[in-house]
């Protein structure tokens, strides 16, 4: 599904990612954990194609294609989805309007007929039940006046409607209370399938109680310093990220 090979990237000429390699197969869920400033969000952004991140080396192959050569919307249409850490508000643009425009742009790209209003509404209402969202949210402006939890649920609703191949969830658990977290996790879990892969970017282990990852990677100083199974997350929860300082200085010393 996704193969990241020695990826290096800078933001405002400051190197943030210093050589990341990662292999994600179809159906797998990978958690990327790490302290603040370790480059987690930069990794999400570079995969989605954000312009302020400059790739300085390495390559990323997505379903056999050079991901980094693709435009932002092309990546989206090819099935790459980013659930934003801070979803933006778009005043005056109805949630339902955005969703329909997005879905139909993607369907068009895949050579599928566009959905008409009736079929689309039936689909989206179905997905809203899953996310325990009130239908009135469809007709409100995108994220405008939404609570933090509502915004995150709205992100997952978009993911459920768009049915991406690769989902990147950037700190989706931040700012969620436990009930909202369960609903979000439930939505994400329902989308797990052998054809679909996910990257969960998170600071805390809490999310992983509800969404069981296949692999956990620890990112620090722009590199993956450790990889393991779900048990690694528990270890981090117990011991924090303090040990990373040592591990990092050892890596640097070794070079």
């Amino acid at each position: 599904m996704l193969s990241i090979d020695n990826l290096q990237a800078s933001v405002a000429d400051k190197p943030i990612l210093r050589g990341i390699s990662l292999e994600i197969k179809a159906g797998e869920v990978h958690a990327i954990m790490g302290p603040n400033g370790s480059g987690k969000s930069t990794l999400s952004n570079v995969l989605a194609g954000r312009e302020n991140v400059r790739v300085t080396g390495g390559k990323v192959t997505y379903r056999g294609k050079d991901l980094l050569a693709m435009e932002v919307e092309e990546r989206a249409r090819e099935g790459v989805f980013l659930a934003f850490q801070y979803p933006v508000e778009i005043p005056g643009v109805g949630n339902v309007y955005l969703l329909k425009a997005a879905l139909n742009a993607q369907r068009k790209h895949r050579g599928l007929p566009e959905l008409d209003a009736m079929d689309f509404l039936a689909l989206v209402k179905d997905k809203m039940k899953l996310m325990e969202m009130n239908e009135s949210m469809l007709y409100r402006a995108v994220n405008e006046g939404f609570s933090g939890g509502e915004k995150k649920r709205n992100e997952i609703l978009q993911m459920a409607v768009l049915e991406p191949h690769l989902s990147i969830l950037d700190e989706t658990d931040s700012g969620l209370d436990i009930d909202a977290l369960k609903i979000v996790a439930n939505g994400v879990n329902s989308l797990r399938s052998p054809e679909r892969s996910m990257i969960l970017v998170t600071h805390y282990q809490r999310l992983l109680d509800y969404i069981q990852p296949d692999f956990v990677h620890v990112l620090a100083g722009g590199r993956i310093v450790r990889s393991g199974g779900p048990e690694l997350a528990h270890e981090l929860e117990r011991e924090g990220y303090a040990w990373i300082g040592d591990a990092q200085s050892q890596t640097v010393a070794a070079q």
């Binding site: 194609g49 919307e73 989206a76 989805f81 934003f84 742009a105």
Partner: peptide
């Protein structure tokens, strides 16, 4: 650019 990036990331 945030709003624009968001829309494009959804395929628009």
């Amino acid at each position: 650019e945030d709003q624009l990036f968001f829309c494009r990331q959804r395929g628009i």
